[in-house]
Design a protein around this nucleic acid. Structure first.
Lengths: 344, 344
DNA sequence: CCGCAATCTTTACGCATGTAAAAAACGGGA
DNA sequence: TCCCGTTTTTTACATGCGTAAAGATTGCGG
């Protein structure tokens, strides 16, 4: 067992190099002479030492930490986003501290406090939607570089944002559905965030533009916040039972709802699909990782999650470093891409 | 805009209470007289102040942080586990810092360094499997209270562990499948962690016990580490194409593989199920959240994730506090529960 | 071997807070 | 109003490391 060493002071005695030199070494091994750094490296092999994070960070003007707040973890969309963010941050030399708000505004507020008290260099927030306390975000923004990802509250128009252009993405699939069959109805969900509303509006706009009458179902909460699949299944099950929408195109607000919708269809012996007779089609939004494996495989629009993650980090780093137009707010929207599979 | 205050010193001038008193207040508002705490509370309303996390934590002997290392985020099993852990930790008054190892041993090692340097009070690690560097875990264990969750390396027999009793859970579903049809074959996966092996062995043991001949398929990696669905689909697709296993029970090592298996079945026009003619049955393990929504709904064994999360945190807290038999290692295994749905 | 520049050591202070000890102020009861 | 115990203030030191300045070493070119 290697001897355990707790402070740089002790370490400096142990390997015969002064503490300031060690300090420089840990910040950048190249900042000391080759011979010295070799001596230190060998010394470190013989003992058990990790610099104290808190002490280190407390004294630097910068902490090298990016804080991330995510509303919900049990959703592969967010985990994909998170992984993209972590990867990008890692490459940029930052450590990521993630806090999950568990879709609870008070936890979100606490998470923001934690990030602020940790003096993170910047924060990336995927907000809860209308549930989020705008005051919390205002405090964050007044204290540190801060931007929103994924979902964009109407109350924060002048904050940096990176996300999907839902008008484009939803328009794209709506148009496709109109082209191949009867105009779709829109299966919505309880309003857990602004994307839901944006997609709904985009659907309505596109249908109106094409001269059709929009039809939105499933807005009433069936006690299923974030239980998207259950929501989709319950809503459609009810309609199908009454013989409604059996031969229509159904555009779901997202893939998880669509997975529920597929389930409802199969329970009623229906097989949605572009090739299928009967005219039932089901489509989603997001390109949830499981889409290729549903039966039938789900047609959807992919969000460019990788790009969103990457872009948000690089923009945040710009803001942190005060580069470019760091002080004028900026909105980046990425296009969705049609994923034609079997269900529509 | 409230005036921004950065240190307790400034705060103490701003609201006319001495710094040590403020310090006591922030640690526990009840430790100061009611009148004083009221004065402080009102003062805090008028200014913008958050105590510096690093400075606070650096001086306390305890940091109030539990570190968690998770191998992979794009898997709802881990996110469920993580949420259970976070909830339990929150209730116990701890802050959780999560690090994801992105299924990369070197990132896992770095994550461990981060946790150690942060002087977390304890660490909870869901290891990568044989990929994990045992040295990393030994260092963690020698520095702080530390335990393993979910997957248990054979190389660390004397470390605390909380997880599922795979012998029981896999035995349970194996037995069920044997009871309702022909003895199942086992659809395995590349060995990303020890659970895969444990389940496979449990399957073999049970089948042998019942006097049948075990049959394991899908061990050869089809270049699909962690692409479980794709793996399941690819393997079965191949077998089905050769007319093999069309009428058998197939026990998949986990639900994600099973979802791929269902897909393969549907592509071949097969409908697995306990009611279905033909004898094809597909079952999984874990009770992945989407199981009720697949077509057909997936029969599986549920892991008690909630319990695992809760138990691991409460055991870790025991170790941190030095309570009970904190120094003798302890293994807690939870039973799986059969979830009979449609697919088997 | 000398001299100069680069590097290291020594010394000292700073960061934001915890915490202990002594002195001062406070509050309630008689 | 006085007294005594409780609470607060004052003062001072501690945490582990960043960092600056001055003096001591080192290494390299000549």
């Amino acid at each position: 067992m290697k001897p355990k060493i707790n402070t740089m002071e002790e370490l400096s005695e142990a390997i015969g190099v002064s503490r300031p030199t060690l300090s420089r070494y840990f910040q950048s091994p190249d900042s000391v002479r080759g011979k010295t750094s070799e001596k230190i490296r060998q010394g470190l092999e013989r003992v058990e030492y990790v610099p104290n994070f808190f002490a280190t960070r407390m004294n630097r003007k910068t902490t090298g930490i990016i804080g991330v707040i995510i509303p919900y973890l049990n959703d592969l969309f967010f985990t994909k986003l998170l992984m993209a963010i972590e990867t990008a941050a890692m490459e940029a030399g930052y450590t990521v501290i993630t806090q999950c708000s568990h879709s609870d505004p008070s936890i979100e507020a606490r998470a923001a406090e934690t990030l602020m008290s940790m003096s993170v260099d910047g924060a990336l927030v995927a907000p809860l939607g209308d549930q989020s306390d705008p005051e919390v975000q205002r405090r964050l923004g007044s204290r540190l570089p801060f931007m929103l990802v994924d979902s964009r509250p109407t109350t924060m128009p002048d904050v940096d944002f990176v996300g999907t252009d839902h008008k484009q993405s939803t328009g794209l699939i709506t148009e496709y559905l109109c082209r191949v069959g009867r105009p779709p109805v829109f299966l919505a969900m309880p309003r857990v965030n602004f994307n839901a509303v944006e997609r709904e509006n985009a659907y309505i706009a596109k249908l109106t533009e094409l001269g059709h009458k929009p039809e939105v179902i499933g807005i009433d909460p069936i006690d299923s916040r974030w239980h998207f699949e259950a929501h989709g299944e319950a809503v459609l099950d009810q309609y199908f039972s009454h013989g409604a929408y059996l031969d229509r195109s159904i555009l779901c607000v997202n893939d998880r709802v669509a997975i529920g919708a597929l389930r409802a269809a199969s329970r009623h012996g229906l097989v949605p699909g572009r090739m299928a007779k009967g005219g039932l089609r089901i489509a989603g939004h997001d390109d949830y990782p499981l889409c290729p494996f549903t039966t039938p495989a789900l047609t959807t629009v992919a969000q460019n999650v990788e790009a969103i993650g990457k872009a948000s980090v690089s923009r945040l780093v710009e803001m942190i470093r005060g580069e470019n137009s760091a002080n004028e707010s900026q909105v980046q929207l990425f296009d969705g891409v049609l994923k034609l599979r079997e269900s529509a």
